[in-house]
Protein backbone atom coordinates (compact mmCIF):
# COMPACT_ATOMS: atom_id res chain seq x y z
CA UNK A 1 0.00 0.00 0.00
CA UNK A 2 0.96 3.63 -0.43
CA UNK A 3 1.23 5.83 2.61
CA UNK A 4 1.20 9.60 2.86
CA UNK A 5 1.52 11.53 6.08
CA UNK A 6 -0.27 14.86 6.31
CA UNK A 7 1.44 17.13 8.79
CA UNK A 8 -0.98 19.64 10.15
CA UNK A 9 1.67 22.23 10.92
CA UNK A 10 -0.93 24.97 11.01
CA UNK A 11 -3.13 23.37 13.65
CA UNK A 12 -4.39 25.74 16.23
CA UNK A 13 -4.14 25.71 19.96
CA UNK A 14 -0.41 25.07 20.23
CA UNK A 15 2.85 26.85 19.53
CA UNK A 16 4.07 26.57 15.94
CA UNK A 17 6.85 24.09 15.30
CA UNK A 18 10.29 25.38 14.35
CA UNK A 19 11.86 24.38 11.04
CA UNK A 20 14.19 22.02 12.89
CA UNK A 21 11.26 20.26 14.56
CA UNK A 22 9.37 19.91 11.29
CA UNK A 23 12.52 18.65 9.53
CA UNK A 24 12.96 16.02 12.25
CA UNK A 25 9.39 14.82 11.73
CA UNK A 26 9.85 14.54 7.98
CA UNK A 27 13.18 12.73 8.33
CA UNK A 28 11.49 10.32 10.69
CA UNK A 29 8.85 9.62 8.04
CA UNK A 30 11.65 9.20 5.49
CA UNK A 31 13.43 6.66 7.68
CA UNK A 32 10.17 4.70 7.58
CA UNK A 33 10.07 4.93 3.74
CA UNK A 34 6.68 6.69 3.74
CA UNK A 35 5.76 7.71 0.14
CA UNK A 36 5.25 11.37 0.88
CA UNK A 37 4.58 14.08 3.43
CA UNK A 38 1.82 16.56 2.67
CA UNK A 39 2.30 20.05 4.08
CA UNK A 40 -0.94 21.89 4.63
CA UNK A 41 -1.33 25.59 4.08
CA UNK A 42 -4.02 27.67 5.57
CA UNK A 43 -5.11 31.18 5.05
CA UNK A 44 -6.96 32.86 7.85
CA UNK A 45 -10.33 31.39 8.62
CA UNK A 46 -12.07 31.92 11.85
CA UNK A 47 -9.21 30.30 13.73
CA UNK A 48 -5.69 31.65 13.39
CA UNK A 49 -2.82 29.44 12.29
CA UNK A 50 0.16 28.99 14.56
CA UNK A 51 2.71 28.05 11.89
CA UNK A 52 5.27 30.62 10.78
CA UNK A 53 5.61 28.97 7.35
CA UNK A 54 3.85 29.05 4.01
CA UNK A 55 3.82 25.53 2.51
CA UNK A 56 5.81 25.93 -0.76
CA UNK A 57 8.65 27.80 0.92
CA UNK A 58 8.73 25.18 3.68
CA UNK A 59 8.88 22.35 1.14
CA UNK A 60 11.80 24.04 -0.66
CA UNK A 61 13.72 24.09 2.62
CA UNK A 62 12.72 20.52 3.55
CA UNK A 63 13.91 19.30 0.16
CA UNK A 64 17.49 20.22 1.08
CA UNK A 65 17.47 18.22 4.32
CA UNK A 66 15.86 15.02 2.99
CA UNK A 67 16.84 12.65 0.17
CA UNK A 68 14.10 10.22 -0.71
CA UNK A 69 10.69 11.12 0.66
CA UNK A 70 8.08 12.86 -1.52
CA UNK A 71 7.12 16.40 -0.48
CA UNK A 72 3.72 17.85 -1.31
CA UNK A 73 2.71 21.41 -0.60
CA UNK A 74 -0.83 22.67 -0.57
CA UNK A 75 -1.24 25.79 -2.70
CA UNK A 76 -4.44 27.57 -3.62
CA UNK A 77 -5.63 28.37 -7.11
CA UNK A 78 -6.95 31.67 -5.76
CA UNK A 79 -3.71 32.93 -4.21
CA UNK A 80 -1.38 32.17 -7.13
CA UNK A 81 -1.54 32.88 -10.84
CA UNK A 82 -1.19 29.59 -12.77
CA UNK A 83 2.11 30.61 -14.39
CA UNK A 84 3.60 31.48 -11.00
CA UNK A 85 2.34 28.32 -9.34
CA UNK A 86 3.66 26.15 -12.18
CA UNK A 87 7.09 27.78 -11.82
CA UNK A 88 7.17 27.39 -8.06
CA UNK A 89 6.42 23.67 -8.19
CA UNK A 90 8.64 22.99 -11.19
CA UNK A 91 11.43 24.62 -9.22
CA UNK A 92 10.61 22.62 -6.08
CA UNK A 93 10.78 19.47 -8.17
CA UNK A 94 14.28 20.32 -9.38
CA UNK A 95 15.45 21.32 -5.88
CA UNK A 96 14.17 17.99 -4.55
CA UNK A 97 15.50 15.94 -7.51
CA UNK A 98 12.02 14.78 -8.50
CA UNK A 99 10.21 14.46 -5.18
CA UNK A 100 7.75 17.38 -5.27
CA UNK A 101 4.02 17.54 -5.70
CA UNK A 102 1.13 19.95 -5.55
CA UNK A 103 -1.85 19.33 -3.32
CA UNK A 104 -4.69 21.24 -4.95
CA UNK A 105 -8.17 21.41 -3.57
CA UNK A 106 -11.44 21.63 -5.47
CA UNK A 107 -13.03 23.31 -2.47
CA UNK A 108 -13.11 27.07 -2.00
CA UNK A 109 -11.59 28.31 1.25
CA UNK A 110 -14.21 30.62 2.76
CA UNK A 111 -12.13 33.72 3.55
CA UNK A 112 -9.48 33.42 0.89
CA UNK A 113 -10.91 35.36 -2.05
CA UNK A 114 -11.55 38.34 0.22
CA UNK A 115 -7.80 38.75 0.75
CA UNK A 116 -6.99 38.42 -2.92
CA UNK A 117 -8.97 41.30 -4.36
CA UNK A 118 -11.95 39.05 -5.17
CA UNK A 119 -14.39 40.07 -2.42
CA UNK A 120 -17.27 38.67 -4.46
CA UNK A 121 -15.66 35.18 -4.49
CA UNK A 122 -16.63 32.58 -7.10
CA UNK A 123 -19.80 30.62 -7.62
CA UNK A 124 -19.30 26.87 -7.10
CA UNK A 125 -19.68 26.20 -10.79
CA UNK A 126 -17.25 28.95 -11.79
CA UNK A 127 -14.76 27.77 -9.21
CA UNK A 128 -14.93 24.23 -10.59
CA UNK A 129 -14.52 25.30 -14.22
CA UNK A 130 -11.79 27.74 -13.30
CA UNK A 131 -9.88 25.12 -11.30
CA UNK A 132 -10.05 22.61 -14.13
CA UNK A 133 -8.74 25.20 -16.59
CA UNK A 134 -6.07 26.19 -14.10
CA UNK A 135 -4.83 22.61 -13.65
CA UNK A 136 -4.69 22.13 -17.41
CA UNK A 137 -2.51 25.22 -17.75
CA UNK A 138 -0.15 24.17 -14.97
CA UNK A 139 0.31 20.67 -16.36
CA UNK A 140 0.67 22.04 -19.89
CA UNK A 141 3.43 24.39 -18.71
CA UNK A 142 5.17 21.53 -16.89
CA UNK A 143 5.19 19.64 -20.18
CA UNK A 144 6.61 22.54 -22.22
CA UNK A 145 10.20 21.36 -22.37
CA UNK A 146 11.03 17.94 -23.82
CA UNK A 147 13.21 15.66 -21.70
CA UNK A 148 16.16 16.12 -24.09
CA UNK A 149 15.67 19.86 -24.75
CA UNK A 150 18.75 21.07 -22.87
CA UNK A 151 21.96 20.59 -24.85
CA UNK A 152 24.56 22.54 -22.82
CA UNK A 153 26.71 22.61 -25.96
CA UNK A 154 29.32 25.26 -25.12
CA UNK A 155 31.46 25.04 -28.23
CA UNK A 156 28.50 24.82 -30.61
CA UNK A 157 26.79 27.72 -28.83
CA UNK A 158 23.57 25.75 -28.43
CA UNK A 159 22.21 25.88 -24.90
CA UNK A 160 18.91 24.29 -25.77
CA UNK A 161 17.18 22.90 -28.81
CA UNK A 162 14.52 25.46 -29.84
CA UNK A 163 12.46 22.69 -31.48
CA UNK A 164 12.08 21.00 -28.10
CA UNK A 165 10.65 23.98 -26.28
CA UNK A 166 6.89 24.36 -26.77
CA UNK A 167 4.60 27.33 -26.34
CA UNK A 168 1.36 26.65 -24.49
CA UNK A 169 -0.73 29.35 -26.22
CA UNK A 170 -3.65 28.74 -23.91
CA UNK A 171 -6.70 30.97 -24.27
CA UNK A 172 -9.62 29.97 -22.09
CA UNK A 173 -12.63 31.32 -20.23
CA UNK A 174 -10.61 32.39 -17.18
CA UNK A 175 -6.96 32.59 -18.24
CA UNK A 176 -4.72 33.14 -21.19
CA UNK A 177 -1.15 31.96 -20.86
CA UNK A 178 1.38 31.89 -23.65
CA UNK A 179 4.26 30.00 -22.03
CA UNK A 180 6.65 28.34 -22.08
CA UNK A 181 7.71 27.95 -18.48
CA UNK A 182 11.15 29.35 -17.67
CA UNK A 183 12.03 26.39 -15.47
CA UNK A 184 13.45 23.15 -16.86
CA UNK A 185 11.50 19.90 -17.09
CA UNK A 186 11.13 17.95 -13.87
CA UNK A 187 13.44 15.03 -13.14
CA UNK A 188 10.23 12.96 -12.70
CA UNK A 189 8.71 14.50 -15.86
CA UNK A 190 6.10 16.40 -13.91
CA UNK A 191 5.46 17.21 -10.25
CA UNK A 192 2.79 14.94 -8.75
CA UNK A 193 -0.73 16.38 -8.59
CA UNK A 194 -2.84 15.30 -5.60
CA UNK A 195 -6.43 16.52 -5.60
CA UNK A 196 -8.51 16.82 -2.46
CA UNK A 197 -11.84 18.35 -1.49
CA UNK A 198 -13.58 16.38 -4.24
CA UNK A 199 -17.34 16.70 -4.67
CA UNK A 200 -19.27 14.31 -6.93
CA UNK A 201 -19.06 16.80 -9.80
CA UNK A 202 -15.25 16.93 -9.48
CA UNK A 203 -14.57 13.22 -9.88
CA UNK A 204 -14.21 13.20 -13.66
CA UNK A 205 -11.90 16.22 -13.51
CA UNK A 206 -9.77 14.33 -10.98
CA UNK A 207 -9.86 11.17 -13.11
CA UNK A 208 -8.56 13.16 -16.09
CA UNK A 209 -5.86 15.20 -14.35
CA UNK A 210 -4.77 13.87 -10.95
CA UNK A 211 -1.99 11.48 -10.00
CA UNK A 212 -3.41 11.03 -6.51
CA UNK A 213 -6.92 11.48 -5.12
CA UNK A 214 -7.16 12.18 -1.42
CA UNK A 215 -10.56 11.05 -0.16
CA UNK A 216 -12.27 11.41 3.17
CA UNK A 217 -12.86 8.20 5.09
CA UNK A 218 -16.50 7.23 4.51
CA UNK A 219 -18.82 4.53 5.77
CA UNK A 220 -17.39 1.02 5.19
CA UNK A 221 -20.34 -0.26 3.14
CA UNK A 222 -19.98 2.34 0.37
CA UNK A 223 -16.17 2.33 0.20
CA UNK A 224 -15.70 -0.51 -2.28
CA UNK A 225 -18.31 0.87 -4.66
CA UNK A 226 -16.73 4.31 -4.44
CA UNK A 227 -13.29 2.96 -5.31
CA UNK A 228 -14.62 0.90 -8.22
CA UNK A 229 -16.48 3.91 -9.56
CA UNK A 230 -13.33 6.05 -9.41
CA UNK A 231 -11.24 3.43 -11.17
CA UNK A 232 -13.88 3.15 -13.91
CA UNK A 233 -13.66 6.89 -14.43
CA UNK A 234 -9.86 6.76 -14.51
CA UNK A 235 -10.00 3.87 -17.01
CA UNK A 236 -12.34 5.85 -19.25
CA UNK A 237 -10.12 8.96 -19.16
CA UNK A 238 -6.63 7.44 -19.12
CA UNK A 239 -7.01 3.81 -20.31
CA UNK A 240 -5.06 2.70 -17.26
CA UNK A 241 -6.84 2.35 -13.91
CA UNK A 242 -3.57 2.57 -12.02
CA UNK A 243 -2.74 6.03 -13.43
CA UNK A 244 -4.39 7.53 -10.35
CA UNK A 245 -3.75 6.38 -6.79
CA UNK A 246 -6.67 6.67 -4.41
CA UNK A 247 -5.68 7.36 -0.83
CA UNK A 248 -8.15 7.38 2.05
CA UNK A 249 -7.53 9.95 4.74
CA UNK A 250 -7.34 8.56 8.27
CA UNK A 251 -7.02 10.83 11.28
CA UNK A 252 -4.77 9.55 14.04
CA UNK A 253 -5.66 10.78 17.47
CA UNK A 254 -2.97 11.41 20.04
CA UNK A 255 -3.70 8.08 21.77
CA UNK A 256 -4.57 4.96 19.81
CA UNK A 257 -3.86 1.23 19.79
CA UNK A 258 -1.27 0.37 17.11
CA UNK A 259 -2.60 -3.13 16.47
CA UNK A 260 -6.10 -1.76 15.98
CA UNK A 261 -4.85 0.83 13.48
CA UNK A 262 -2.90 -1.82 11.56
CA UNK A 263 -6.01 -4.03 11.51
CA UNK A 264 -8.14 -1.21 10.21
CA UNK A 265 -5.70 -0.29 7.43
CA UNK A 266 -5.27 -3.91 6.41
CA UNK A 267 -8.99 -4.50 6.32
CA UNK A 268 -9.73 -1.44 4.16
CA UNK A 269 -6.80 -2.15 1.85
CA UNK A 270 -7.55 -5.85 1.37
CA UNK A 271 -11.20 -5.02 0.71
CA UNK A 272 -9.90 -2.95 -2.26
CA UNK A 273 -11.40 0.31 -1.10
CA UNK A 274 -8.22 2.30 -1.81
CA UNK A 275 -4.57 2.13 -2.94
CA UNK A 276 -3.33 3.37 0.40
CA UNK A 277 -3.81 5.95 3.09
CA UNK A 278 -3.18 9.55 3.91
CA UNK A 279 -2.50 9.57 7.63
CA UNK A 280 -3.45 12.92 9.13
CA UNK A 281 -1.16 13.50 12.08
CA UNK A 282 -1.31 16.37 14.52
CA UNK A 283 1.96 18.23 14.75
CA UNK A 284 3.15 16.33 17.80
CA UNK A 285 6.32 14.32 17.26
CA UNK A 286 5.16 11.51 19.56
CA UNK A 287 2.19 10.59 17.36
CA UNK A 288 4.35 10.10 14.27
CA UNK A 289 6.92 8.22 16.37
CA UNK A 290 4.22 5.82 17.51
CA UNK A 291 2.98 5.31 13.95
CA UNK A 292 6.47 4.68 12.61
CA UNK A 293 7.66 2.52 15.49
CA UNK A 294 4.53 0.52 16.24
CA UNK A 295 2.08 0.53 13.30
CA UNK A 296 4.47 0.30 10.34
CA UNK A 297 6.42 -2.74 11.61
CA UNK A 298 3.10 -4.51 11.95
CA UNK A 299 2.11 -3.58 8.37
CA UNK A 300 5.51 -4.76 7.10
CA UNK A 301 5.21 -8.02 9.00
CA UNK A 302 1.94 -8.57 7.14
CA UNK A 303 3.63 -7.79 3.81
CA UNK A 304 1.56 -4.65 3.28
CA UNK A 305 4.22 -1.94 3.20
CA UNK A 306 7.72 -1.53 1.78
CA UNK A 307 10.85 -1.93 3.89
CA UNK A 308 12.81 0.64 1.89
CA UNK A 309 12.47 2.92 -1.11
CA UNK A 310 13.20 1.29 -4.46
CA UNK A 311 13.55 4.46 -6.52
CA UNK A 312 14.43 8.07 -5.88
CA UNK A 313 11.46 10.03 -7.25
CA UNK A 314 7.99 10.49 -5.85
CA UNK A 315 6.43 9.06 -9.02
CA UNK A 316 8.57 5.99 -8.50
CA UNK A 317 7.41 5.61 -4.87
CA UNK A 318 3.80 5.91 -6.01
CA UNK A 319 4.24 3.50 -8.90
CA UNK A 320 3.19 6.14 -11.44
CA UNK A 321 4.24 6.32 -15.07
CA UNK A 322 7.23 8.55 -15.76
CA UNK A 323 9.31 9.18 -12.73
CA UNK A 324 12.74 8.89 -14.23
CA UNK A 325 13.84 5.77 -12.39
CA UNK A 326 10.70 3.66 -12.19
Amino acid sequence: MHLAVSLDIASTGQAGLTFGEIAALVRNAETASIDMVIISDSLPGDERSSSPFEATTLVAALATVTEKIGLLAAASTVTHQPYNLARRFASLDIISHGRAGWNATMMQAPREAGNFSRPEGFSDDDFRRRTEEYIGIVQGLWDGWDADALLFDKSGGRFHDPEKMHLLDHKGAFFSVRGPLNVARSPQDMPVLALSGLAAADLDIAARTADVMLLEDGPAEGAKARYDDLKRRVMAARHEPDAVKVLTTITLAAAYRPAAVADRLEEQFRAKTCDGFNILIPAQPSVLDDFVDRVLPELRRRGLFRKSYRGTTLRSHLGLVGGGDL
Binding site: T56, T57, H160
Partner: peptide, 15 residues
Protein backbone atom coordinates in the same frame (compact mmCIF):
# COMPACT_ATOMS: atom_id res chain seq x y z
CA UNK B 1 15.52 30.57 -20.63
CA UNK B 2 15.55 28.17 -17.70
CA UNK B 3 16.45 28.51 -14.04
CA UNK B 4 15.10 28.21 -10.53
CA UNK B 5 12.10 30.23 -9.44
CA UNK B 6 13.83 32.50 -6.92
CA UNK B 7 11.53 32.29 -3.89
CA UNK B 8 11.81 28.51 -3.78
CA UNK B 9 15.55 28.81 -4.46
CA UNK B 10 16.09 31.23 -1.58
CA UNK B 11 13.88 29.16 0.74
CA UNK B 12 16.18 26.22 0.06
CA UNK B 13 19.27 28.39 0.63
CA UNK B 14 17.77 29.81 3.85
CA UNK B 15 18.31 26.55 5.73
Amino acid sequence: SIGFEPISLLSALAV
